[in-house]
Amino acid sequence: MDGDCLTAGDERVARVMLSRVVEPGDPAVGRWVREYGVEAVARDLSREGCDPPYLGGRAAGGFRGRAGGFDPVRALERFEAGGGRFVCPGEREWPTQLDDLGDARPVGLWVRGSPDLRLWALRSVAVVGARACTEYGAHVAGALGAGLAERGWIVVSGAAYGIDSAAHRGALAAGGATVAVLACGVDRVYPPGNAELIGRLAAQGLLVAELAPGEHPSRSRFILRNRVIAALTRGTVVVEAALRSGSLSTARQARRLGRITMGVPGPVTSAGSAGVHELLRDGAEVVTGAAHVAELVGRIGADLAPAARGPVTRRDRLSPVAARVLDALPGRGSVDGAWVARESGTERDEALGRLYELLSLGFVERKGDRWQLVPTGREHPIRW
């Protein structure tokens, strides 16, 4: 239909029309909307015979060709009847962090799922990466999704094969919340192999898209979609990405927007992690688990990751003097107390006292007036 339905002054209808007529993230369209108003721009770009001067030489035919046969009022009614909704800037559910995109801000968002998008986005993290991921990458992404969900974070990704799917599934397996931002209409199942996952996301989480229902994905739309993932979340984690991976655009956009960018390192010999390693060289934060991510994106001082340390052994619990006395004993043979005192740099009585401590703990044994280490495997089963 033409743009006559937009003369009534309904901004929502105008934004629905623009979601069909323009490509996502077109900064020129965003500037026109800011300067002339969304209703005027939607009417101008969809009505035959209108050639507004602000187009600046851009052909209006392409816009009108996409508008042909599209009834925004009917499309909105049909979508809402199916349980979906269209969220506009300025409305209560609109995530205001998307306004950081400036003129590249979405004209609106088509949403499937009952949770409140704005509230979920307040505590969200993006987990993205390669479609053709390795078993290592899928394992890490799934663990991140589950770990973040267990900590109350919303996992945001793109529902693609590989890392995206693993992150979504990890969050769902942990009984957590997850959001998929699509590069097509929310009524389309893409990729087809993820039909079951996308169905679960619609039922248990949220599906979000800029493009009107029925719109198909394309290479450029995936890249444009990534800016929404970056802007919507508190930070972006990249798990496995080659040097030309599209997921790196999400991290770069996140950095430009002042969000936290993170990367999971992989084998230095893996081309599938080369992009992540370059991202880390450029200043992204190294993370190896959900605790690290939560510490970086969470409240200062409230979401600290536990300090990384190796396992504590029985020997680690010895006092410094007792450890020094133990170190003084030779690996083979026995020695007297005077020898231990001299080698450990302690007084003889002090050395003897520590030797008896070590005896009670099962580290040494006494042979007459001489001392020796207990052979490996024969230590006393003392728990302390």
Rank of each mutant, 00 (worst) to 15 (best):
C5A: 13
C5G: 03
D10N: 14
V16S: 11
V29C: 06
V29G: 04
W32M: 11
R34Q: 15
Y36L: 02
A40Q: 14
L45Q: 15
L45A: 13
D51L: 15
P53T: 12
L55R: 15
G56S: 12
G57E: 00
G61L: 11
F63E: 03
R66C: 10
G68M: 15
F86H: 00
V87G: 09
C88S: 12
E91M: 06
E93M: 02
W94P: 07
L98V: 13
A104E: 15
R112F: 02
G113P: 05
A121Q: 00
G129N: 01
R131F: 05
C133D: 11
V155L: 05
Y161M: 14
G162C: 03
T178D: 02
T178W: 10
L182M: 07
G185T: 08
D187A: 07
R188E: 02
L197T: 10
A202L: 08
L207K: 15
L207V: 08
V208L: 02
P217K: 05
R225A: 04
A241P: 06
L248P: 01
T250H: 09
A251E: 12
L257S: 04
L257E: 01
L257R: 09
S273H: 10
G283S: 13
A291P: 07
G301I: 09
G310T: 09
P311R: 08
V312D: 03
R324I: 07
G333V: 15
S344Q: 06
R354N: 06
E357V: 10
L358T: 12
L359A: 12
L361H: 02
R370A: 01
Q372L: 05
P375S: 01
T376G: 15
E379A: 10
E379H: 08
